[in-house]
Amino acid sequence: MSTMSCSTQSLDSGYEQSPQFRQGKFQNGDDVSAAGLAKLPKIIWRYMFEKSNAAMPEKPIPLVNIDMASLTGKQGQPEIYRLGHSSLLLNFSGNIWLLDPVFSKRASPFSWIGPERFHPLPFELDNLPDIQGVIISHDHYDHLDRETIEAIADRVEHFVTPLGVGKYLQEWGVAQEKIHQLDWWQNIELGALSLTATPAQHFSGRGLTDRDETLWASWVIQSEQHKLFFSGDTGYFDGFKTIGERFGPFDLTIMENGAYDKDWAEVHMTPEQTLQAHLDLRGKALMPVHNGTFDLALHAWYEPLERLAELAQAQWVPLVTPKIGEALPLQELYTTSPWWRATADIQVSAAL
């Protein structure tokens, strides 16, 4: 593992030294590739004819409104808040960090079409306080949102991204000295946090011609008191065991759990794989994300949560599923309620 700050490095070149950059593109460790354009007609057909009737909730997703004004004054135990999909807020004694913030109405390059939110934000964007740092896992629209970055840029001290992703931030007005780009296994110390970019099995691209021009990553987030793992988007691979051996055990793993399918199994995990990855990482409590906000797959919106809840119960894994906006103290990762069952208004277990 190497330690570095990349704020003075070119943001869109110089990747040739990265072991992940081969034949002009970033690649997964075992050269695993995501489904390409050849599968697109089949996937479109399946979206037309195999879509779940419960792809979107019929009742409102429960929300807890966050009093943003109170966050910076908190000097107690660190807290984590789910903001929707894979967006999270970490409050370390008044120092605010955001993970993959996407606050727009749609996860899309367009404002008029594309996956639309099931629920509003649990706070007013204008009330967001100063932010010590933003951590980005990769460049897909449901994890990197231009409108959000432009709205918060002046309030953020540091942006931490995988290699190449910083070029988008700079194009959108973020000062280069705020941007830190890391390769897998590189580390940076910012304030009271130690951040390490770790491997993931995914892909990148925001259009038809820029496939894998930027890197994707998972993240190890360490404070003096706590150690967290954030998976970003990833398929299941043996890298979880390696990360667990190097950095585990983790107090909390924040794991992708949603938008999976047989046609893109290499780059998104089923609930069974999510649980196994958590075990590989030597995690204590497990928080599932990448669900409950956008319709990005063919399964029912509640299916990832319910399947994982049943699996975790069977293997005695503490599962934490806070409502959107609910404060979760990291020191006391209490049992949370399966809020999706009432929202789905059906006997979910029997339906699966």
Score class of each variant (00 low, 15 high):
S337T: 12
Q201R: 14
L63H: 03
H143K: 10
S108G: 11
Y81C: 07
S194Q: 14
Q315G: 01
G244D: 03
F250W: 07
S104M: 11
I152H: 04
Y334A: 13
P115C: 10
Q331H: 07
K105P: 00
V156E: 08
L63Y: 01
S108I: 06
R341S: 12
G29F: 08
L98N: 09
Q313E: 15
A197G: 07
Q17M: 07
T335P: 00
V289S: 04
N65F: 00
V32N: 02
H278A: 15
F229E: 04
Y15V: 10
K105G: 00
P62T: 09
F294W: 11
P338E: 06
R341N: 09
L208V: 07
L286S: 04
Q225C: 02
L275G: 06
L286I: 05
A312V: 07
H119V: 10
V317S: 06
A265W: 10
D142Y: 02
L305I: 04
L128A: 05
A200W: 01
T198L: 06
T209M: 14
Q186I: 13
V64M: 10
R117S: 08
F118G: 09
N95K: 15
G14W: 05
E189L: 04
L215H: 02
T242G: 01
L279I: 15
H299V: 11
A54F: 08
N187Y: 04
P271R: 06
R82T: 02
L208F: 12
T321R: 11
F247C: 09
V165K: 02
Y334K: 12
E266L: 00
P101G: 12
T293A: 13
Q186S: 11
S223V: 11
L308G: 12
D212Q: 13
R246Y: 02
V267E: 00
A54R: 13
G94L: 12
W264Q: 00
A107H: 08
A351I: 01
D145P: 07
C6V: 06
I61S: 05
K105I: 13
A69R: 15
V165N: 15
R117F: 03
L279V: 13
P304G: 09
K59S: 14
G248C: 05
E58M: 08
A217R: 04
V289H: 10
